[in-house]
């Protein structure tokens, strides 16, 4: 009897430990926004989501996967492409955002059109210039695939795919994309220290950037107009498209700066290729308008040494482990 109790305890313990490891809130992070109770993580569901993420089956002509525009090696964005492209070489209107720490994100897309991670994948699946499909078509295709019937059975004890289970599985994989072990994080945990240049950059960052790119996620999740001249071809008004309010004109979501060295080009339309281009914009390229973020009204002045220091700090936000994590890559 005693032996059985011990075994039962051990099993319970390992079940508990096993569950805990699927998603750990980093010590310096706030509680996540995503409601895990509605979609409890499991190894099989994450694997199903990861398989879907890398599978062009999600697009109408089986050519484009999530990974096409969100490659792990660029912190899950579309490297070298200012505007991302989808099926039949269609070009979109925005730069695909890097994917990380999505459990802490309140809204998705540059204009916050999507309010829940579960619903995010619907947008690229349905957009005619991205995957050009729809959820019904996707689910029908998945249900005729013996591979997916097996994966769905393993994940949900039901081999039939539904829209809900498909979307939730994709969420599960995306939730595991946590980046919280950059040099910056290690410094914050007192494991290593900044160089003098990085430290000076950190001070400049706190003075000039941190009100929007707030630590530790390096975004406050808000929408702001950062003074970019409007692209006359794209005529993208950003957040205003969603709210219909003039006060949101030209506002876009403040992106996280984590892994920024990997996720070029920058801005909602990918107009800047290098970090120096970005800093040059903030120091001398700001276009004044009614909705311009007040902090940017001529307050951002950095000399060239300071710019170099600031960039050296920004590079401490890179996490090689995240970008090359085999658990995040093409499932084998």
């Amino acid at each position: 009897m005693k032996r059985y109790t011990t075994i039962a305890f051990c099993m319970l313990f390992f079940a508990f430990v096993g569950k805990q490891n699927l998603f750990v809130v980093p010590k310096n992070f706030p509680p996540p926004v995503y409601d895990f109770k509605n979609n409890p993580l499991s190894v099989h569901k994450i694997f199903l989501g990861r398989t879907l993420f890398y599978d062009p089956i999600l697009s109408t002509n089986n050519t484009i996967s999530c990974e096409s525009c969100h490659s792990p090696f660029s912190a899950f964005t579309h490297i070298d492409h200012a505007l991302s492209h989808g099926i039949n070489d269609s070009i979109g209107t925005r730069n695909s955002p890097a994917l990380m720490n999505l459990a802490w994100q309140k809204s998705f897309m540059w204009d916050g059109a999507i309010h829940n991670l579960d619903m995010q994948a619907l947008a690229p699946i349905s957009h005619p210039a991205e995957m050009g499909s729809n959820m019904k078509e996707v689910v029908e295709k998945l249900n005729t695939s013996p591979k997916y019937r097996q994966l769905f059975y393993q994940a949900y004890k039901d081999s039939v795919a539904s829209g809900e289970n498909t979307l939730k599985a994709i969420s599960q994989f995306m939730l595991t994309l946590v980046s919280a072990n950059s040099k910056y994080d290690q410094v914050m945990r007192n494991e290593v220290s900044f160089t003098e240049q990085e430290f000076n950059g950190y001070l400049l960052f706190k003075k000039n950037c941190a009100s929007c790119h707030t630590e530790p996620l390096f975004t406050n999740g808000n929408f702001e107009n950062n003074g970019l001249p409007i692209d006359t071809q794209l005529q993208d008004l950003g957040r205003m498209r969603i709210t219909g309010m003039a006060q949101d004109s030209l506002k876009f979501k403040v992106p996280s700066l984590r892994n920024i060295a990997y996720s070029f080009p920058y801005m909602h339309d990918g107009r800047f290729k290098k970090l120096t281009d970005v800093l040059n914009h903030y120091s001398k390229g700001i276009v004044a308008s009614k909705t311009l973020l007040p902090q940017l009204n001529g307050n951002f002045t950095l000399n060239s040494n300071e710019k170099v220091d600031l960039i050296s700090f920004l590079l401490t936000l890179s996490e090689k482990e995240f970008v090359f994590n085999p658990k995040f890559q093409y499932p084998k």
Binding site: A113, I114, L117, M119, A123, G163
Partner: peptide
């Protein structure tokens, strides 16, 4: 509306969920 993916009558396969915004 803000509670994430749901099944049955609320499943997005029914075509009653917007895709370009939530």
């Amino acid at each position: 509306n803000v509670s994430g993916a749901m099944g049955g009558n609320l499943d997005p396969v029914n075509g009653m969920y917007w895709t370009w915004q939530s």
